[in-house]
């Protein structure tokens, strides 16, 4: 019962948060200079003042801002994210068609980062003075400080040009066709470089973090107890140490998911990956406000969901948080 009430409270506060972000985003975009009507008119090849006024009336841009805000919020509540000026498509449809590739890229990148980062971090913490450990530290530093687009370009040069084994753009090869299995393989093949690029930064961060927390945990009293109990090294490290060392990594994953979305914008642009990132990028250039706002709403919801999942994971791992209940 307590847990249910707790969950209800969290959902409510998540909804309020999303609402605030929607209003804030709307205001922010409206404050920004530039008139969408002139952009639309420009796409049409120029127009007179009268045509501009017609365009404004057609899209409701002639209404006062508060009225527009009210209309916007009401429509979002019913799942209507508006209509793209540029694509001439409902924004919701546009986003749905781009969400899949972005989620695929994010989840794969995150998966690579978690598995590889934690693995590298743990291994280097077990032998902190070994050459391998120093190598991990150097790699982390480079991976952490290298900009995503630069890493992406390097990978393109390396695996697209010098040793061309991976495709360097798009999500599939339109010149080929085959069964569903071929399709899956084709997408996976195209996914390798973008996912590695996105994953590299976070692999480096998680490796650093995991190395540090693992070193700390390995010095702890309860690990000494585990050793005094005569447990196998694999149990001491894999059970007693790792589960404690992973806690800060879980926290960081939750905090960084927003950053990761913006990282995806860069990666998608570099690799021409047809996801939300490229859509956002194009929408900014085209002052396609409804699309941009829709993407912002969508990423807000994504971040909130991921944060709730992170908290859930944290509770599953750490009984102390579970016991703290609502206060946690």
């Amino acid at each position: 019962m307590q847990a249910l009430a707790n969950l209800g409270g969290r959902l409510l506060s998540a909804l309020v948060l999303i609402g605030c972000v929607i209003v804030f985003n709307f205001l922010l975009i409206n404050i920004a200079p530039g008139d969408p009507a002139t952009v639309i008119a420009g796409e049409m090849g120029g127009a007179s003042e009268q045509v501009l006024a017609e365009i404004r009336a057609a899209y409701g841009l002639d209404q006062p801002m508060l009225v527009r805000l009210g209309t916007y919020v009401m429509r979002i509540a019913t799942g209507d994210l508006g209509y793209s000026y540029y694509y001439n498509d409902p924004v919701a449809d546009l986003i749905l068609s781009r969400l899949g590739p972005t989620l695929l890229l994010l989840i794969t990148g995150l998966g690579i980062a978690i598995v590889l980062g934690v693995w590298l971090g743990v291994l280097s913490a077990l032998r902190p003075d070994s050459p391998f450990s120093h190598l991990v530290t150097v790699f982390s530093l480079i991976g952490y400080s290298a900009p995503v687009f630069w890493t992406g370009l390097l990978l393109i040069i390396l695996f697209g040009s010098a040793w061309p084994i991976f495709p360097i753009g798009g999500i599939r090869d339109v010149t080929q066709s085959g069964g569903p299995l071929f399709h899956v393989f084709d997408v996976a093949h195209h996914l390798v470089l973008p996912a590695l690029t996105l994953g590299a930064v976070y692999t480096a961060q998680y490796a650093r973090l995991c190395r540090a927390s693992m070193l700390e945990v390995l010095k702890s009293d309860y690990v000494r107890t585990a050793r005094a109990k005569g447990l196998r090294t694999s149990v001491i490290v894999g059970k007693h140490a790792l589960r404690n060392a992973i806690l800060p990594v879980v926290t960081i994953i939750g905090l960084q998911i927003g950053q990761m979305l913006s990282g995806a914008v860069l990666v998608e642009t570099v690799f021409n990956w047809p996801g939300l990132g490229t859509l956002a990028f194009e929408s900014v250039l085209r002052r396609d406000y409804p699309t941009l706002l829709g993407i912002l709403v969508c990423s807000t919801v994504l971040v909130v969901i991921v944060n709730m999942l992170t908290e859930l994971a944290y509770r599953l791992i750490d009984p102390r948080i579970r016991a703290a209940g609502g206060a946690g």
């Binding site: 702890s220 009293d221 309860y222 000494r224 107890t225 585990a226 005094a228 007693h240 589960r243 404690n244 791992i317 750490d318 009984p319 102390r320």
Partner: peptide
């Protein structure tokens, strides 16, 4: 050990 508060694994 000396400190039972930290000698057991909290998880």
């Amino acid at each position: 050990f000396q400190d039972p508060m930290t000698s057991l694994n909290p998880l």
